[in-house]
Structure formats: structure tokens, C-alpha cells
């Protein structure tokens, strides 16, 4: 039963991230054209990093990143490298400063989207033969929009955790216990 609930939780998260990525790539594009969309998939990844312990959360984040990358031409190697570095920076931050609240989640998404863009730019410059451009306005728009959209997503992901009775809960900063 325990394994079953975990699998349902995992499956649901994958579906949520794919659904959000499709919203970002199709619905947003059809309505608003070239206006850069918020990084909805990153909000899900941030939530998983906060809500899960390190080894399993890294695997889960990788899985979610691969699921999201199915809607992009992004190189998997570059993407997972960026996600790996991003993951540990966020974990480091969380281990030193964590408050279970919506405000914290919003701030994390604000900083996280900025961090992701910086990491992606630097990694692309280092690893790719044709590195990416700065694309300042697109990135700025995404950094500003992502925390706004993280508010309903926090509620949604909390509801999903509650519904699936996901077994892991966090007690305080840097310490977790299984229920």
C-alpha cells in the first residue's frame, strides 16, 4: 500500500508537470504569442526539492525534468547538468533557511527562476558549441511571472500530497521523518 501510494503520487506529479509544460508551450503561445511564459515546470521541481529527502528527490527531479524536456528541443545532457547543479544549490539554501509557507515558496521560485537562467546560460557557454544568447527581456519576464503562478501551484501540489497521503513529511529545517 505504501509503495502503491508513492507510485500514484509519482505518476500524478509526472502528469502535472507534463500538463503544465503543455499549457506553457501551447496555450500560452496561442493566446499571448511570443510573450515569454512562466516556468511552471520549475515550480513543481522546486516543490519536490522542498518536500522530499535528498536522494529520492534528486531521482524524482530528474524524472520530472526528462518529462518536461519532451516538449522542448533542449539537449538532455545540458538540461540535466543544469538541473543537477540547481538542485544542490536549492538544497543548500533549504538546509540553512527553511520555513514551511507559501511566501517561502514564492520567494524560492523567484530566486530559483533567476538561478536557473544564470546556470543555463553559463552551462551553455561552457558546454555547447553554439552557446545561447542573453535574451534579457525574455528571461526577465519569466523571472517575474514564475512566482506569481507559483501561488496556485503550491495549493495544487499540497492538495495532491494530501490526496495521495504521501508518506513523507518535513518537520523543520533540514530534518525529515517518515510518517
Amino acid at each position: 500500500m505504501f509503495i502503491g501510494r508513492k507510485l500514484v503520487y509519482l505518476f500524478g506529479l509526472v502528469l502535472i508537470i507534463i500538463f503544465l509544460s503543455a499549457f506553457q508551450t501551447v496555450f500560452w503561445f496561442q493566446l499571448l504569442g511570443q510573450l515569454a511564459p512562466p516556468l511552471l515546470w520549475l515550480c513543481v521541481i522546486n516543490y519536490v526539492i522542498l518536500a522530499r529527502r535528498e536522494p529520492q528527490s534528486l531521482v524524482l527531479v530528474y524524472l520530472l525534468a526528462i518529462a518536461a524536456s519532451s516538449l522542448s528541443s533542449i539537449s538532455i545532457g545540458v538540461f540535466l547538468t543544469v538541473i543537477f547543479i540547481y538542485f544542490w544549490i536549492v538544497v543548500l539554501f533549504k538546509d540553512n533557511f527553511y520555513i514551511e509557507s507559501l511566501s517561502y515558496f514564492i520567494l524560492l521560485n523567484l530566486g530559483g527562476s533567476f538561478l536557473f537562467h544564470v546556470l543555463f546560460y553559463c552551462t551553455s557557454r561552457l558546454l555547447e558549441s553554439n552557446p545561447t544568447q542573453i535574451l534579457f527581456f525574455d528571461r526577465l519576464t519569466q523571472v517575474l511571472l514564475t512566482p506569481l503562478f507559483s501561488i496556485p501551484l503550491y495549493w495544487l501540489l499540497k492538495k495532491w500530497e494530501k490526496y495521495t497521503k504521501a508518506p513523507e513529511i518535513y518537520m523543520d529545517t533540514a530534518r525529515y521523518e517518515y510518517e
Binding site: S21, A22, Q24, T25, V26, F29, Q30, Q34, A36, W41, A68, S69, L71, S72, S73, I74, F120, S124, T132, Q133, L135, D138, R139, Q142
Partner: peptide
């Protein structure tokens, strides 16, 4: 054309 790329660094359409 139904969509665009997930990240702005790639200029692709779906």
C-alpha cells in the same frame, strides 16, 4: 503550428 519550445533559448515550433 500548435506550440513553441519550453525554454526561450531554443527557437522551435511544434
Amino acid at each position: 503550428v500548435v506550440g513553441r519550445d519550453l525554454v526561450p533559448d531554443y527557437n522551435t515550433l511544434t
